[in-house]
Design a protein around this nucleic acid. Sequence first.
DNA 1: TATTGCTATGCAATCGATTGCAATCGCAGT
DNA 2: ACTGCGATTGCAATCGATTGCATAGCAATA
Lengths: 365, 365
Amino acid sequence: MQSIAIAVDTYCNRLQDCVYRLQSHMLKLEDIAKLAGVSHSTVSRALAGSTLVNRATRERIEAIANDHGYQVNQVARNLKLQHTNTIGLIAPELSNPYYPKLVQSIANCVGDSGYSLQLHLSGKDQENELNSLINLRNNRVDGILLVTGEHGLVASEYAAGLHKSGMPIVFMGWFPGAEDFDFVTGDDADGARQIARHLLELGHKNIAVIGKTVHRGPFDRTTVFINEVAQGGVVIDIGNRYEITSEQDVILAVKQLLQTEPRPTAIFAYQDSIAMVVCKELHAAGLRVPDDISVIGFDDLDIASFVSPALTTVGCHIDAMAHAFVNRLTDRISGGSAAAQPTGIVVPTVLIPRQSSGNTPLKPR
Amino acid sequence: MQSIAIAVDTYCNRLQDCVYRLQSHMLKLEDIAKLAGVSHSTVSRALAGSTLVNRATRERIEAIANDHGYQVNQVARNLKLQHTNTIGLIAPELSNPYYPKLVQSIANCVGDSGYSLQLHLSGKDQENELNSLINLRNNRVDGILLVTGEHGLVASEYAAGLHKSGMPIVFMGWFPGAEDFDFVTGDDADGARQIARHLLELGHKNIAVIGKTVHRGPFDRTTVFINEVAQGGVVIDIGNRYEITSEQDVILAVKQLLQTEPRPTAIFAYQDSIAMVVCKELHAAGLRVPDDISVIGFDDLDIASFVSPALTTVGCHIDAMAHAFVNRLTDRISGGSAAAQPTGIVVPTVLIPRQSSGNTPLKPR
DNA sequence: TATTGCTATGCAATCGATTGCAATCGCAGT
DNA sequence: ACTGCGATTGCAATCGATTGCATAGCAATA
């Protein structure tokens, strides 16, 4: 109790200080130097805690600097020191609820490591991504975290160039050629496999896939899913594979799918956000999930457990991913840049069975 | 068709250029100057498109700079120019799905205005907020966007100091003393009033409130709601007012609320995210929404329409808010800082009736 | 031819820090 | 008294741009 009171008190004092300090805004080293009757070099050293300056002098300088609210000018400091203590983050967007979760985690990790975050939203646009990269480079960030969207292919060439020229970069998500760089990705392949087995165990033989073409190579959810299900003896008819690019497409796909004869008993959706639209449409069409038809998503968004029925899905510990992501980068920044081989970190995924998946209906239709 | 092909082509060339340029990394003005046989001043002027340099010379320099992929060092430029083309954004978090929407909009606007975004997540912690503010100041951002969380009180003092010392700041959300600054807020008061009237029209007389204490003064949702409902002759019993701080609290509140005699026929929840938990718990307790009990949220999150039943709520056009938010700031940055009076911009809210609210059940219980 | 004027360019200061090197001081040892 | 050394401190260069001012070159004019 008492300690809390003291802490609060200390905090308030600090605030007071800060408010006060602002009255005289934006002083520089030399101002403090003049006040203390020393040279600005001495002030610089004193404030950096150098042993090269006399203890008494240092304390006097510290007091003065404090009183007048001196705060170092980072941009000058950055210029001299040739680093910025800033990390650039490029993410596709924040609308898809998967990304905020990720960015939040990343921001926390970055902050904990003592860096600032420069955020760019590429909005799925490759030219934007390129511009962000250039901008980040011009601002001399110490390293770049690049979350490849569902494209991420083209601009990665420039990123590769940057990387080669010494700029530490870590990618999130797989893309062709990723092996030459540091990257982190969820084990979507294994996730897809788990879903496949889950559906097989529930007895489904007629399954539809609503996916996107994203060329994630060995980690491509759709491809792996289709293969694994085939492994279990279930081949997914080409007519039951829907490639979609917008919410509108999903709605269309569901409509079409419901005309198919015999009607699929389960739907594998590329993402939770797609699965949710699917459920909504199914419901609108008078079908029950999972009694008439099972639906499975991917990502384990927070909302997945809120919709009704709660969504069966696959997810991975996003904090772990974020952690690996920024740790790899900060290691690169501090350690020798070309020291270690590029590494791909694959973080495991796990199936989360909820209510949207169930046994095959006994007599379809 | 053809134009697309050309565009793609141009883009690819540009990419090629960029990749190439990187081979010789991080040249400076003087390198280009040497290459062109002129002084670095001339190069600087040429690249800035100054009329002071001979057209032929300029073009030659541009070509060389381009060939060698020269890109200006922003941090040096910033130091000289005394501005950074960067805007700082402090937001509480990204977990609550309201903020990503907002941040996304803000990031777009900021980008469109030609600024970079420095993002800080204060995580509801006032000391964090203070640190972010200091950090942003030390990095000499050109202006600060501060999204006050549900506290936002303390650090605003330092912000006020910063503001007074000439740093452009715009706040989002109301707090005591906000009138002295530029701020933008949704018209939560009116939103609350609309909900009150909606519930009254549906015949509800026994209403529970699950809210937070956030001291939003004239814009406080809970207070305004309670008053407006009282205006209509319905007083909300003190025992039917729940103050919560965590998801756990919400669950407890619902449990307790269901014991109350007579049981409320409607619940006003402070936020959609709370309302969703409420619905979930109600459902778990075997009650039907809205047949047995109506639930209304606030914010109009994207998910609000996905949950079942779809949530009746209040929202405002978030793009408009973001737009007002960053425009106000960029105006301050470019225009005279102390020129105009501080302005509060209040953007209207609108009731979105969906399925979670309905008529009072005829015989309660 | 000398003067004027204009265009194009270079020199050097500046932004605000950091840091290697030189200089100063006091004091002890011989 | 002189030398040497350790402890402090200041000088000045540096990071990579921008820009006011001086200047060189050249044509036009008197």
